[in-house]
């Protein structure tokens, strides 16, 4: 039974002698909850994950990578409510209406929680994603991810934050884990952990929603009346992660808890084995911009050179 039973009552209310109607059923936790107790459950789960993986404490300055989507806004809302010192960071990717609308929603939300939102524009720093996509033969999401990681890291350091928190949820992590396992991509599997500690120019990156499903994040934003961008980035159409998510959701429907078990099982049993005897390359600094990189010239500077050759940008390291 993966659906909310007709006439089901909130199980937490029941323990308090109340009989409030349940509006959500969480099959893998076997929990029927009302709106108020769902919000409470969600925030407790986020806090528990932060503590379980020793992500950060209330003394740390956290920068939340905000896209205007449900996950990052849900994360920012939960962190502020839980009393963490969390501000927002938005990268304007220059993807027409999609970027314009998501930026407005991020700004609107920053006002609502009364926290600063730092903004970097790719049009000013590098080139908008549609232009980057024209000169590279990689999938747009791949270049976009590398660019976002570069500016997030650089700006967080500049602004004095010690942690970057992203809204990656359980479905994102499971889809990536599934893809990396299918291709036996050991190099990426070695790094798939909800905390990436700071090292040589990289600041700590954490994923506090790694045990929250996509539906759970969407429910939390709807219950909190948070407006978010509901349609997909035009460049993510046909992304393999969506295919994997749909496939995994079919499994989950038949066997609730599969996704969480696959992910937490990997973290507990496989991840430690992958850390043994590894001769991983150590980060060095990019010869051109001085930011941390695993190669002599970082991926963003390589892109800048390509853009410069194609006449799209003047090289400015």
């Amino acid at each position: 039974m993966s659906k909310l039973r007709k006439g089901a009552r909130c199980q937490i209310c029941k323990t308090k002698g109340e009989t409030k109607k349940a509006v959500v059923y969480l099959p893998h936790h076997r929990l029927s909850l009302c709106k108020e107790h769902y919000i409470q459950w969600f925030e407790k789960r986020v806090e528990k994950t932060i503590k379980e993986f020793k992500m950060f404490s209330k003394k740390d300055k956290v920068l939340v990578a905000v896209s205007g989507g449900k996950d990052s806004l849900a994360l920012w809302n939960a962190l502020v409510k839980l009393g963490y010192d969390a501000d927002g960071f938005y990268i304007d990717l220059g993807i027409d209406d999609y970027s314009q609308q998501s930026k407005e929603l991020a700004q609107q939300f920053a006002q609502r929680v009364g926290r600063p939102l730092h903004i970097v524009s790719l049009k000013e720093e590098l080139a908008p994603i549609p232009e980057v996509d024209r000169i590279t033969n990689k999938p747009a999401c791949s270049s976009c991810g590398a660019i976002k990681r570069y500016y997030m890291n650089r700006e967080a350091k500049k602004l004095g934050y010690s942690i970057i928190a992203t809204g990656h949820n359980l479905d994102d992590e499971v889809a990536v884990l599934f893809g990396n396992t299918l291709h036996w991509n050991i190099h990426y599997l070695k790094k798939q952990y909800p905390v990436l500690m700071e090292e040589k120019g990289f600041i700590r990156k954490v994923k506090p929603l790694c045990k929250i499903t996509e539906k759970e994040a969407a429910l939390y934003t709807v219950f909190n009346e948070i407006e978010y961008i509901e349609y997909e980035c035009p460049f993510s159409e046909g992304a393999s992660s969506i295919e994997y998510k749909e496939l995994l959701s079919k499994l989950e429907e038949q066997h609730p808890g599969t996704k969480l078990q696959f992910y937490t099982g990997f973290l507990k049993k496989m991840y430690p084995l992958l850390q043994e005897k590894t001769e991983e390359s150590q980060p060095t600094v990019c010869k051109l911009c001085g930011e941390p990189s695993f190669t002599d010239i970082c991926s963003v500077c390589k892109l800048k050179e390509k853009l410069s050759k194609s006449g799209n940008v003047s090289v400015n390291h």
Binding site: K70, C141, T213, E214, K215, A217, A218, A239, I242, K245
Partner: peptide, 8 residues
């Protein structure tokens, strides 16, 4: 109707 699946 909310479809929570997103890619990227």
């Amino acid at each position: 109707v909310i479809n929570a699946i997103s890619g990227g």
